[in-house]
Every structure is written in C-alpha cells, then in structure tokens.
Amino acid sequence: MTATQQTSTLPTHRYTLVVDLDRCNGCGSCATACAVENNIPPAPERSNVRTGVVWLRVHDVATVDPSGRSTFVPIPCQQCDEPPCVDVCPQRAVEYDPRTGIVGQIPVRCLGCRYCMVACPYHTRSFNWWSPEWPEGMKASLNPDVSIRQRGVVEKCNFCVQRLQAARAKTSAAGKTDIDPADYVPACVEACPSRALSFGDANDADGEVAKLAKDPESFRLLAALGTSPKVLYRSSDPVVRERLSRTGVTRG
C-alpha cells in the first residue's frame, strides 16, 4: 500500500464557517475572542489599520445598503479551497491541508517577504512589524496551545487549529478515530452572542453548515475570483448579497 492510499483512508473534512450578516450587530466579540485565543499582542501605539496584527476584522460597510443602514462583515481568513497565498509562498510556509481544508500558516517558516499578503484578495493577513509585547502580568494569561510569533513574519487565522489538535488528542485518548464535532469550535464562533457564526464540516450532509451552504441566501466574497472560500456569508437582502459577492470590502 502506498503512502497516498493509506493517508486517503483517514477521515476527510471540509471545515466551513458561515456568517449570518442579518444577525451580526458588529459588537466585535469574535475579534476579541480571536485575539485572546491566538495570543495576538495589543497593538503598539505607533501602529495603524495597516500595520497592526488582526486575524479577524469586523468591517462596518455603510455603503453596501442603499438605505444607509450599516452592514457589519466579520472577515477572518477565508480558508480558500484554491488559496492564492499558497501558490506564491517561496518558503512553503502556507499550506492547504486536504484532510481538513484548512489553509495552515507556519510563522516560523516565514521569511517575511509578504507575497502572500499581496496575493490575498481579502486582506486577512498581518505582518509583524514589531516584536510582540504584553503589558506587565498579562503574559501569564497567554494560551499555551498557541505559539507566539516573532517580528518579521506573517500570520493569519488558522481556524483555531489548536482546538482541532486538542479534539484529536481527546479522541485518541478515548480510543476513537474521528472527533466529536462539539469538541472543535473556533473561538469566534464560541464567543458570538447573537449566534451569527456557524461552524462545521461541510462534508457532513446532514450538518447545519452543509444545509446553510446550499441555501440561496448564502454567498462568497469576491466569488468571481474562483478562490472558493470556506467562509460563507448570508443575508436576506439581495442588494447586500449582490454587492458583497461582487466587490467584497477593502481595508479601512
């Protein structure tokens, strides 16, 4: 039996995040939970919207709706099935995992060329312009399951893969082979008070995420680029759907 054949017998998943824009009130809990879970240091005073490190940004897109009403759009890494960042990385520091669909970023491998940041049409990648620093005493509250990144490397959302690792370890300890979906929930999904975020395996046909993905109200940002993101958005407003899927949003 070859290596490929044996690997293919392992369970495969397509982890997908669905964001319901009708439910999102822009509170920013997801972004805060993400920063705490993933040891993102507080931004230094000299940083700005371009130079700070953010894995999940909640954009206030007032211009989307002609009535002037705000639409809040939380944008983490879109976890593309056809990720442009993987193609451009000269270090193989970004990698598409066929078993989970997660686009994994390995900061220690990164040389800081930032090609991936240029290639990413969603602006979800951050460069560490400064060494990470925490206020006195806050280091004790860091998450030991996530390694901190040094100055000079790029980082992004990994769909809280450390929680998948923990779920797998728990599964192995129990003598099982596949994880319980309830054990793998990213921090942003867990934190959302209005339950605008749903997370799960799109390969599970009976799961909530697979059903939401088929819904006509679901769409992808910049769908025409063919990056096939595994972060889907939903809105009951056809104008929001049409404009966001066509233009996406830009930073700032």
């Binding site: 290596a3 690997t7 989970t100 893969v161």
Partner: peptide
C-alpha cells in the same frame, strides 16, 4: 510518519 504513510499537514504538529 513517512514510513507509516502518515504524512499530513504542517499544522498537524505545529502550533
């Protein structure tokens, strides 16, 4: 891992 046909993603073993 290679000998056992268990090669997978970087993020399986890196955090």
């Amino acid at each position: 891992h290679r000998a056992g046909g268990r090669e997978s993603a970087c993020i399986d073993c890196h955090k």
